[in-house]
């Protein structure tokens, strides 16, 4: 365990140096910053506007008050930024590595290849989303008059963390399949477009979809569960389930990567 932690910290030390170079290379594009800020503001305004449409004659959506829904939307926005900063750039790189056959160079490095490949690049363009998402969560939390306690804070952090892990694992699972399929990137688009459903609390959906979003595509655990934790209305049973799910997903993604690598090395030699 200690050995594993040490190797992990080593990887992150190397990664930090790479992040600074990737930030440097991103800053080459001044226009991007402007575009990114406009797009975050516009996206947020649009999302809040659409959400307000559901509340204009009524006062709740699937049992969620307006401010409680804002927390869900905030979590969704944070996840969006996390995707832009880490998942999207790194995992699209994996696909390219596999296609160009440069994965070999990565595999020859004396480090954990999954960790390396997953966090090699940091794109600063997700930061505006993450910040505005946090703001939205705080606004929603304060106005919904939920009780604050250290216990709920810890639980919230844990749930957000497990939502990060689940989302990461989903992306990584799809990226791994690029070892067999050439243009796997489009599968990620499917994932991204379905995750849009996470903008709204899960109880706003009809029963059948709710079941799908909980058990097949764990959208419920990505946004609704962390929001419930923040609002201090999460049951321990669900919290426990979320943690189990995160660990299981991480484990599966790791195993699947190992399995795929066996294929990769035996196929390319």
């Amino acid at each position: 365990m200690i050995k594993y932690l040490r190797s992990t910290s080593e990887v992150f030390r190397v990664l930090f140096s790479f992040w600074s170079t990737s930030i440097a290379s991103e800053l080459e594009y001044q226009l991007n910053l402007v575009i990114e800020i406009i797009s975050v503001v516009a996206n947020l305004t649009g999302s809040i506007f659409i959400l307000s449409l559901f509340y204009s004659p009524t006062t709740n959506l699937g049992g969620w008050s307006w401010h409680a829904s804002l927390v869900v939307l905030g979590i969704y926005t944070i996840l969006d930024g996390y995707t832009t900063s880490f998942l999207h750039p790194n995992l699209s790189r994996i696909v390219r590595h596999v296609q160009n056959g440069t994965l070999d160079f990565v595999l020859l490095k004396p480090i954990n290849s999954q960790l390396w490949l997953s966090f090699r690049i940091f794109s600063p363009w997700g930061i505006p989303s993450i910040l505005s998402g946090i703001t939205l969560v705080i606004i929603g939390f304060i106005n919904s008059q939920a009780n604050f306690s250290i216990k709920s804070l810890l639980l919230s952090i844990l749930m957000v963390l497990s939502s990060f892990i689940i989302l990461y694992s989903l992306w990584f699972l799809i990226a791994t399949t690029s070892i067999w399929f050439v243009r796997v990137w489009n599968a990620n688009e499917v994932l991204r477009s379905t995750l849009v459903a996470g903008r709204y609390p899960i109880s706003a959906y009809p029963e059948s979809l709710r079941r799908i979003f909980t058990f097949i595509l764990p959208i419920a655990f990505l946004t609704t569960v962390p929001a419930e934790a923040i609002l201090n209305i999460l049951s321990y049973r669900i919290a426990f389930l979320s943690l189990i799910l995160a660990i299981a997903f991480l484990f599966i993604s790791k195993r699947f990567w190992m399995f795929a690598l066996k294929f990769y090395t035996s196929a390319s030699s």
């Binding site: 699937g62 489009n186 599968a187 688009e189 991204r192 477009s193 849009v196 706003a204 009809p206």
Partner: peptide
């Protein structure tokens, strides 16, 4: 896959009807 990723209107339909 592209065609499947265009299901957003159907998701929205579900919410609108449920609401």
């Amino acid at each position: 896959l592209w065609a499947i990723s265009g299901i957003l209107p159907l998701i929205m339909l579900a919410i609108w009807k449920e609401a």
